[in-house]
Amino acid sequence: MSYQIVVCAGIVPDPLQTLEPVSTPQGPALKNEAMLPAVLDPWAAHALYEANHLAKNMPGSKVYLVSLAPKAKLQQVLMTIAQKVSFELIALDGPSTGFTDSHDVAAALAAAIEAIPGLDKSRLLLFGGWESAARAAGATLSMTGERLGIREQFQGVDSLTVGSDGSFEIRERVEGGKHLVSQCSGAPAVLGWATGNLPEPPNSPQVGMQNMRTVMPALQKAKPAGVAVTQQYASVALPKQQRSTRIVRDVAAAEVARELAQWIRGAH
């Protein structure tokens, strides 16, 4: 049993960066977006690690990474990601901002996936993040799956176990810190990953060298994707959140504890 695992992963500003929206003629954008260090969307990155893990355990499987992002920025992110896991890159040149519509992004991704030479939908697993640091909750991934005709979909996945008969046991995050356990007969399926359980793989020089054989050619031939902001934005702003903070200092720990105990016990 082997799979074609296609991981859809956008790039986003490093979540540790300070973000500020600005207006542009093309719609809302982030201030200094081109300058902000970017990373692979964190949930999608986990999906990529899971894909790699699964492919290693299923000989003959192959991992594709499909990404729509400004080419130069994508190249920069890939120099780190390409050292971690093996994949074949399919790059689309276009905006990575969260303010574009998931509908259009899904259309571009699905078209790129359909064009993969030798695509076998019966062995296709579409991976991605269930959340995104940019836009939404797995919407793009799910819509891409629909466009590819995949009607077994999972979101918030923390584990995928392949049975000897090719069936999947999948655990999805649901309300209350719990997992929903589902049994699926097998591929094709869409899996929007939460964080899973795999650590971030360390950078490996050999993996990087191997990936470079496809990464640079893919970037060089990345086609522009027709994605634009179509929503009518009335406003885009940082939430008002400034509170007046009472600072308690030079007070004994026991006193702090007493105040906290009272606060915890007190009715809200």
Partner: peptide
Amino acid sequence: VGGQVMMSGAAQIWPGM
């Protein structure tokens, strides 16, 4: 500069290593 070098395909620059 790094982007241009890498796009040339003639050298690889690996960060985080």
